[in-house]
Every structure is written in C-alpha cells, then in structure tokens.
Simulated assay, not measured.
Amino acid sequence: MSAHFTAAPTARLFGPDGPQPLGAVTAPASEPELLAAALDATPRATFRLDPPALHLGPKQPAPAFETLTGGTTGSPRHIRRTQDSWIASFEVNRAAWSLGAQTRAATLGSLAHSLTLYGALEALHVGGEAHLLHGLRPDRQQQAIASRAITLLWATPSQVRMLSGPPARGVTRLLIGGGALDAATEAHARKLFPSAQIHSFYGAAETSFITLDGAPYPGVEIEIRNPAADGNGEVWLRSPYLFDAYGYGPDPHRDARGFTTVGERGRLADGTLHLVGRADRAVRIAEQTVQLEEVEAALLALPGVTEAAVLPRPDPARGTRLAAAYAGTVQLDTSALTALPPLARPRSLTRIATEAWPRRPSGKTDLAALAALLAPDLTDQHSEEAAP
C-alpha cells in the first residue's frame, strides 16, 4: 500500500507575515489539508493538486502529485511523481539529521519550485515547523530566519547571495541546491550562518537528490556513459526518488534497467561526482567546446558580482560568440576575464541592476527573459548598463 503525506502531531505551518501559525496542522491531517494551508500562505503557487487525494486519474492509483521544473533554459515542465518518492528521502534525512519536533525549517522561494515544496513538506512530515518566507525582501527573510530561531534552511545559491543582515546563529544546517555552490557564495553563507553545517546537493525536479556534498545520495546509483577524452560523459542514475513522467509532452528517457538522465555531463572520481554542465549549454567556438556554466563561474568568482549568465550568439567567423550579463556592485569590462581561455571570453558584458535580474519562480535565472533583455544584435562593446 502506498504511503500518503501526513503531518506528525507536532507539525506547524507558518507564513511570511509573522510567527502566527496558519491554522496549526495536526495529525491525521491529509495532504490536501496541509497544502491548502500552504496555498493560503502563498496564493501565487502554481503546482497542481487534484482533490481530494492528489490522485492524477484512475490509471494512477498510487498517491501522486505534480510540480514544476526550474525552467532556466525554457518553459517549466510539469513533473508527476508518487508521494512515496519524496517520503523515502524524508526518512533518509530524518535519520541522518535527527529531524523532529525541534526542527524549524525555512524556505525562501515560491511553492511552485519543487525545492521549496520539498522543504516545507519534509518539515511537516517529521513533525517540525515549516516557515514559508517567500514574498519577503531578502533582508527581511534574513531577519525572520534569525528572529524565528530557524534551525534548517533550504535555499538556492542565488537566494543565498541576495540575503543580507546580521548573522542567524540558530541555523545549524543549510541545504543549498538548484545550482553550483561557488566559493564566494559559500563564504557569504558562512558569514550569515556561522553555526551551520553547509551541505551542497545536486538534483533535479525529475530526480530529487542525486548527490550530497559531491557523493551519491543514499540509494542513488550513478553511471557515466559515452565519456569524452577528458573523462566527462553523460550522467545517468537510478534511485527510489525518480519521477514517473512529465505531465505534458514526451515521457522521460529511461532505459530497460531503470536509469535516466536530465542532460548533465560530468565524471566520477574517488566516489565524487564532478559536474561540468548541461549538454545543451555546451557550445562550439572555432572548433573548441566551451561550457557556458564555466564562464558563468568565472564571472561569479570576481569580487562584487552576485549574478552572472552567458548566452551564445551567432558569429560568422567563429560560429558562436558569447554575450554575458551580470549583477553586482562593480562595473566590469571584458578585460576582467583574462583567467579564461581567449575563445571562452565573452565579447560583450552587460551590467543589470540586481532588482531587474530576470528570475523564474524557482529563483533561478530566466535565460529566455535575459535573451530578450539583451539586444539580439549586441555589438562587441565592452560594457553597457541595462535599464532596470
């Protein structure tokens, strides 16, 4: 018999406007009741529920639900999965991190993002408090984290970079996912949460956890297929946490052994997965392959840069040239990127006001909106300021 999401007797759900619970949630609350309270807290949430029991139709008797991908490189896709697939990792984390009634977990993004929804439901499942801080300014989020004595925080790298304010010393565990954790962001996190054990995890809406601190998450098997000369190849995995299907469009590519891939490339070395980026973000420039994520990482490593994104542009001579955008407290030109190989250096660099940086509901950069913001015929100027 399949498991259903339920809240332990001590579970409580809090919204962004203060410490008053949004109708204390107690067992044996059903999943629709839990999420009805969550939806009241964040009415902009767009994940889909089919009351009364989250079944998605008579052909899928197991309790299931649907959420969205991050949608960084395109429109978000609907993800259908069983409740069991998340409950399995709730129990892994409960045992590993001693989660329970004393846990006060906070999330920063919209419930449309699977990371936020996961963090909130896990807290309710283990009987802790779930604090939904979406809708507050980043400095107010930091204040709430401190004043509410949050112990566990779920965030993306972008969300961490935007936080500001006095340290929140009550946070003992910080889970950062949804993007690579660069050194500058980690250093910023350690200042904000000096008592926290910081975990970087890799996963996707389709797969849930894949790695935790670089190593395969418990229960995950990883294979590297079709490796290139540098050892990097397609990352395939199998686990109890995989999704079932897309709500619309083609179903996931899954082989006869139950392995699937979301298009990432990387290599395994000494039990650690090293990612280089998505296959669809590798471009050819004068016969050289450039991974756009590596160029973005070089930008983020520069002092004062808080966001960075790189877009490929057609070039008659080299096939592709790179246009980069960034947000931060400094004015840069392309000479700041001498650490990159010449062909990987952007030919243009545009500064965008932090408040105007285009984001998906997940908090990730909206590359389609960024492409529209940057002129398609951007010339090889060194730098320009984009209007808010």
Score class of each variant (00 low, 15 high):
A27C: 07
T107M: 04
G18Y: 06
F65D: 02
G74A: 07
R94G: 06
Q83F: 01
R81N: 07
G128A: 09
L121Q: 15
G74E: 06
A27L: 10
L133C: 08
L49Y: 12
A29F: 08
A53M: 13
A106I: 02
P63M: 10
E122Y: 03
A88S: 13
V25Q: 04
A105H: 04
H113P: 03
H113R: 04
E66N: 01
H55K: 05
P21I: 07
G128H: 06
R12C: 03
L117Y: 11
Y118P: 02
Y118Q: 05
H78T: 06
L124H: 05
W97E: 13
H55R: 12
T73N: 07
G70H: 12
T42I: 10
R77C: 06
G119C: 07
T82G: 04
S114P: 03
A24L: 11
T69E: 08
L108D: 12
A96R: 09
L115F: 10
D84V: 06
H134G: 10
T26R: 07
F14G: 05
S85D: 04
E66R: 02
A53R: 15
E122W: 08
P51V: 14
G57E: 07
A27D: 14
S98Q: 11
L35H: 15
L49C: 10
P138T: 01
A96G: 00
G23F: 12
A106L: 04
T116I: 03
P58T: 00
A29N: 10
L108S: 12
T73D: 09
H55Y: 04
R81V: 03
Q60K: 00
L117D: 14
P19G: 08
R81P: 01
S75H: 03
A38G: 08
T69Q: 07
L115P: 03
T67A: 02
E129R: 13
E31T: 06
R44P: 06
A24D: 15
L39S: 14
S89L: 11
Q83P: 00
G74P: 07
A38E: 07
G57C: 06
H55G: 09
T73V: 01
V25P: 02
L68G: 05
L22Q: 15
Q83M: 05
S98N: 14
P16T: 08
G100C: 02
P43S: 10
V25K: 03
T69D: 12
K59M: 05
A37M: 11
P16C: 08
G23P: 09
T103H: 00
D50P: 01
E122G: 02
D50H: 12
A101K: 00
L99A: 13
E33M: 12
P58N: 01
L34A: 12
T116C: 13
N93I: 02
D50A: 10
L111S: 11
R77N: 10
A24E: 15
A130C: 11
L49R: 11
G71S: 11
T116E: 14
H113E: 09
A27Y: 14
G127M: 00
V92I: 14
I79F: 08
E122C: 09
L54I: 04
T67C: 01
R77I: 03
D84S: 11
P21T: 11
N93H: 04
G23C: 09
E31I: 00
L108T: 11
A105T: 04
G71M: 10
G128R: 07
T107N: 04
A45T: 15
P21K: 12
L111H: 15
T46P: 01
G70W: 10
